[in-house]
Nucleic acid binder design. Structure first.
Lengths: 251, 251
DNA sequence: CGTTCGCTTGAACTAATTCAAGATAAGTGG
DNA sequence: CCACTTATCTTGAATTAGTTCAAGCGAACG
């Protein structure tokens, strides 16, 4: 079992959610609700709750009844699956504004993966009944949900193709570029991934092994593309990494 | 370029779509519309058209503006993607009742893959404007779309995990079991896949090579699990194949 | 200060790919 | 009906990318 993407100090952006009420204004700042009518926002806000999940704990587990829909407000969370053999794969990382668990809209559905807080998280949450009511009452919400899932589907398809056709080095390059885009924080020598990122995590993200990741990162470090240390990767030469990620042999 | 999943004689189920009108009754037989209110069906039927696509031709291409939503009525079609290097992967096979292209509901979207008729196909089709109107007017339609895409998403996730963690032999076993479930036709010695299925097709379906598929099928044939020939595979021993597909080493 | 945990690296191994040659079967046209 | 052509499939041999195993290093942590 891996777990470096875990248990690091909550950054200052995590605010204790003392107030129970969720304001329509807060909702309006979420990508999912942005630009919707005041009536819709009010309706959604009335049914929303807040939930805080400490780093390391789970929002939900794979196979559990999908009873809640979340919009992450603060913190990072890891989307992962366990194989029947007990091997873990990471399907992605949720960052603030990410919507998770829309499958709760479906009668009888179960979560298809684990959602684990990497650090202290705060999220807005709707239970199944609220979600169903909202989606039926506000067609635009349902359409947004559809758009959101469709977008994720297309992304996953691309990653599927990547996994089916590309070498490990390129897959790691792409994963790292994605992580930097999601979680990048500028530092002196480049941009660092602002979360503890173990070799094992990268391996589970790219469908390879800890050892292969280590070898490839070592090679990149020798070439000056990255700097890395214990659970830490800093991208120094994005152009060269992009070249590795994209380059077509003959073309 | 592969292409055995192509150009075979249309079975008797293909009916020339001479009549232009689409009846609500026909719609009611489609999984996607089944059980909806008469008003919804009438609305949807009024906006529907029919389209026939001869075997070998494309419904649409990857990257083209997603302007139409299809429900396949007759024939099989192949969902595939081309890598930048020109290698093809097959993401799945659409059979009658399959809904394709709901992404057309999204403003500005493009199709993320190719849809090619394997044999003569007939489909119901709605253009983007009709689809948007329908989904906004009938929340249940939007919810069904959401359910449909979510289901596909979960399936794709499972295949992603499979690709990331399982050996080729098991992936081929699973693909074959899926194909038999979708397209199985009983014969004397077992159940045959009722479509021309080249080694290359299986390779593109499972992320491996023609040669590896050939070797594995040969081995299975020697063990009496399957019978196979040119573009043809018959499953004889489903139990043993399922064992290969499922078995966990220790446990 | 010792233990733990994550990382690195070499060496052996293996699954799968690639290349090459040929076999089999299906059309095609004389 | 037969030769010719083409496409699919098979199989061996060489190669390789990536895994697995094992040993050891070094930083963090109690």
């Amino acid at each position: 079992m891996s777990s470096a993407l875990l248990w690091y100090d909550a950054p200052a952006t995590v605010v204790p959610a003392n107030e129970v009420a969720v304001s329509a204004a807060l909702l309006g700042q979420c990508r999912y609700f942005a630009g919707l009518s005041a009536a819709t926002l009010a309706d959604a806000a009335a049914m929303a709750q807040r939930r805080c999940v400490p780093g390391g704990e789970f929002f939900f587990h794979q196979g559990a009844p999908a009873n809640h829909f979340y919009v992450l407000i603060a913190g990072h969370a890891r989307l992962s699956q366990l194989t029947p053999e007990g091997r873990q794969i990471i399907l992605g990382l949720a960052v603030p504004h990410h919507e998770i668990g829309i499958i709760a809209a479906i009668e009888g559905a179960v979560y298809p993966l684990d959602l684990q807080a990497v650090q202290d998280c705060e999220a807005l949450v709707w239970d199944r009944a609220a979600l169903s009511t909202l989606l039926e009452a506000h067609p635009l919400l349902a359409l947004r949900a559809l758009r959101m899932v469709s977008g994720r589907f297309v992304e996953l398809q691309d990653r599927y193709r990547e996994l089916a056709t590309e070498r490990v080095e390129r897959r790691i390059a792409r994963a790292l570029l994605r992580l930097v885009a999601q979680l990048g924080r500028p530092v002196q020598t480049g941009v660092t991934v602002a979360a503890p990122l173990a070799r094992q995590d990268l391996a589970e993200l790219t469908g390879t092994t800890l050892y292969t990741v280590s070898r490839i990162l070592s090679a990149w470090e020798a070439q000056g593309i990255i700097e890395s240390g214990r659970e830490r990767v800093t991208l120094c030469d994005a152009v060269q990494l992009a070249r590795i990620a994209e380059e077509v042999p003959e073309g």
